[in-house]
Design a protein around this nucleic acid. Structure first.
Lengths: 200, 200
DNA sequence: CGGAAAACAAGCACCCTTGATTCTTTTCTG
DNA sequence: CAGAAAAGAATCAAGGGTGCTTGTTTTCCG
């Protein structure tokens, strides 16, 4: 547990901590959970093992903090992407394409590795469920907003959730091979379908 | 005397091998890739570690065979489910529900763990990509058939692929928590959408 | 035919590597 | 200088691989 908001830590210490978290996420995305050892993370962050040890007593502590960190970054990513969307004709397709991009990006990749690992490691699982619910809700809300639809309308909720699940599936497919070509076609087609479903 | 044990060694060996493969898949689904050690698999299968080592010299060999085995079983599962579908009104929803079921079942779960592990382990990755392409193609074909649509029609290909990706996403969501309630709503809604998309 | 030898299945014990954690020492900075 | 931060060495457990042994089935040759 981190101490409740004391005055900002020493700059050097804070920077080291930050570097460790970034390195963790990068490492997760690139080499997966098992290969993301404390030694690897420390090396990537350019600090010694002992330094990592100082900030995160156990490996679990490191991942706990990394999940928290990723949550923030992912929410920031969603917001920034949502802000730069075109209006008019191609908007829906731009939205779906953006969604597919987010869910094939490095952050989602790292999250995916964590999910699967967490599914069999209880303490981590609980924590991820909690934070993921948060991210999911925000994503859902943002999607409703940019699509300019209301959950009040019957079916809209499920429609939007389904699209999010599809994006997750696309991200999964992209894990093993470069799936971008196939994905483009799906995005185009499903933008049309989505438009119809939401207007009809 | 004592000759009744007509246990052709070949059969016994095959049975052991089979038990090891089944145990591998179960273990993958339940405890994940990292925790599926040869010792665990052997124990589950009710044989000694040495026996496992005899059939599969390395852990990688075990997973190699397990992937092959899973491919067969998954294809059989697809075929059997496809055979028992209702006709008439609720057919599309039954199809989508069936899809969602398959992608939240233990076989998919095991496959999911393997995918993620394979994404960072080259030899395994190559093999899974090859076999997954096969399974994916068969699933796609089966889906076209039970939906009674043709790929010749523009857009149908992408529509069907998208649904498969959504099923994958639903499977992923079900990994960390019991997602069945939310899933039911999505299945219902997306059956409607799919019907419209394929008829329009 | 009969019996040994080869082949095969399975079990058991040990070695070696890896990775996490603990402990001790050095280096900053306030 | 004192205490936090970082580095590095030492310890310990887990897991995979290898070699050896035992028991059983098949083969093959006198």
């Amino acid at each position: 547990m981190a101490e409740p908001l004391r005055a900002p830590q020493q700059d050097r210490s804070r920077a080291t901590r930050q570097k460790l978290l970034e390195a963790s996420v990068e490492s997760l995305a690139q080499v997966g959970y098992a290969a993301t050892t404390v030694a690897v993370v420390a090396a990537r962050a350019g600090v010694s093992r002992g330094a990592a040890q100082h900030h995160f007593p156990t490996r679990a502590d490191l991942f706990e903090a990394a999940v928290e960190y990723m949550t923030e970054v992912r929410l920031a990513e969603i917001r920034s992407h949502a802000a730069s969307l075109p209006v008019g004709a191609g908007r829906t397709e731009a939205i779906v394409a953006m969604l597919a991009d987010v869910y094939t990006g490095p952050l989602f990749r790292a999250a995916l590795h964590l999910w699967v690992a967490a599914s069999t490691e209880e303490p981590l699982r609980r924590q991820i469920v909690r934070l993921e619910a948060h991210v999911g809700r925000q994503a859902h809300r943002a999607l409703l907003e940019v699509l300019d639809v209301s959950e009040k309308t019957p079916g809209v909720r499920e429609t939007v959730q389904g699209i999010l699940d599809m994006a997750r599936g696309l991200g999964l497919a992209d894990l093993l091979t470069d799936d971008s070509k196939r994905r483009r076609g799906i995005v185009r087609q499903w933008s049309k379908i989505l438009d119809q479903a939401l207007s009809g």
